[in-house]
Amino acid sequence: MQIDKQKSVAVVGRSAAIPRPKRVAVALWQLIASLALIGGVIYAFFAGWYWALLGFITMFIIAKANQNTAANFIAETARENPVFEAEMRRASVILD
């Protein structure tokens, strides 16, 4: 089952079919990724430009891992719930 990872985080955030702890986990890691970038940029003003670069790299790694996790949550829920799977196929989140 192929899932569009670009859409996966948004779908997990707003879908009631996905269990609440999984939605909260995805939202929390999205927040942590954003804070890593913001913190790196702010700290760069005081310590050096490389902190902004480190914040960007950290944000990118966390965001990619979060997309993969959200895609796995969608695949797991689609296997258990055929109505959810049909909805995701119509929305072009599940590609095959």
Rank of each mutant, 00 (worst) to 15 (best):
M1T: 09
M1G: 12
Q2C: 00
Q2K: 14
Q2T: 11
Q2I: 11
I3H: 02
D4E: 08
D4H: 14
D4I: 06
K5M: 12
Q6Y: 12
S8F: 10
A10P: 00
A10F: 09
V12S: 03
V12W: 03
V12H: 04
V12N: 02
R14L: 00
S15H: 08
S15K: 08
S15Q: 11
A16I: 11
A17G: 04
A17P: 08
A17S: 14
A17N: 13
R20S: 07
P21T: 04
P21W: 05
P21E: 01
K22R: 10
R23M: 01
R23D: 00
R23F: 06
R23Q: 14
R23N: 06
R23C: 00
V24Y: 07
V26M: 08
A27F: 11
L28C: 12
W29A: 00
W29G: 02
L31C: 08
I32L: 10
I32M: 06
A33H: 01
S34R: 10
S34N: 13
S34K: 08
S34F: 12
S34D: 04
A36W: 02
L37W: 11
L37Q: 06
I38P: 02
I38C: 06
I38E: 01
G39N: 02
G40V: 03
G40H: 02
G40R: 03
G40F: 01
V41R: 04
V41W: 01
V41I: 15
V41P: 00
V41Y: 02
V41G: 01
I42E: 05
I42D: 01
Y43N: 11
A44I: 07
A44T: 07
A44C: 07
F45E: 02
F45K: 07
F45N: 10
A47R: 12
W49L: 12
Y50C: 00
A52N: 09
A52E: 07
A52S: 08
A52F: 04
A52T: 07
L53V: 14
L53Q: 08
L53F: 12
L54H: 01
G55M: 06
G55Y: 00
F56V: 06
F56T: 00
I57N: 03
F60T: 11
F60C: 01
F60Y: 14
F60R: 05
I61Y: 03
I62D: 03
A63Y: 14
K64E: 06
K64C: 02
N66R: 02
N66D: 10
Q67R: 14
Q67H: 08
Q67Y: 00
N68M: 05
T69Y: 13
T69W: 11
A70Q: 07
A71D: 07
N72R: 15
N72C: 05
I74G: 07
A75V: 10
E76L: 10
E76H: 10
T77L: 00
T77R: 15
A78W: 11
R79H: 09
R79L: 12
E80I: 10
N81F: 08
N81M: 06
P82N: 03
P82F: 04
P82Y: 09
V83S: 09
F84H: 09
F84Q: 04
F84W: 04
M88F: 08
R90E: 13
A91Q: 15
A91M: 12
A91I: 04
A91R: 14
A91P: 11
A91C: 03
V93W: 13
V93I: 15
I94C: 10
I94M: 12
L95N: 03
L95K: 14
L95H: 09
D96P: 15
D96G: 13
D96I: 09
D96H: 12
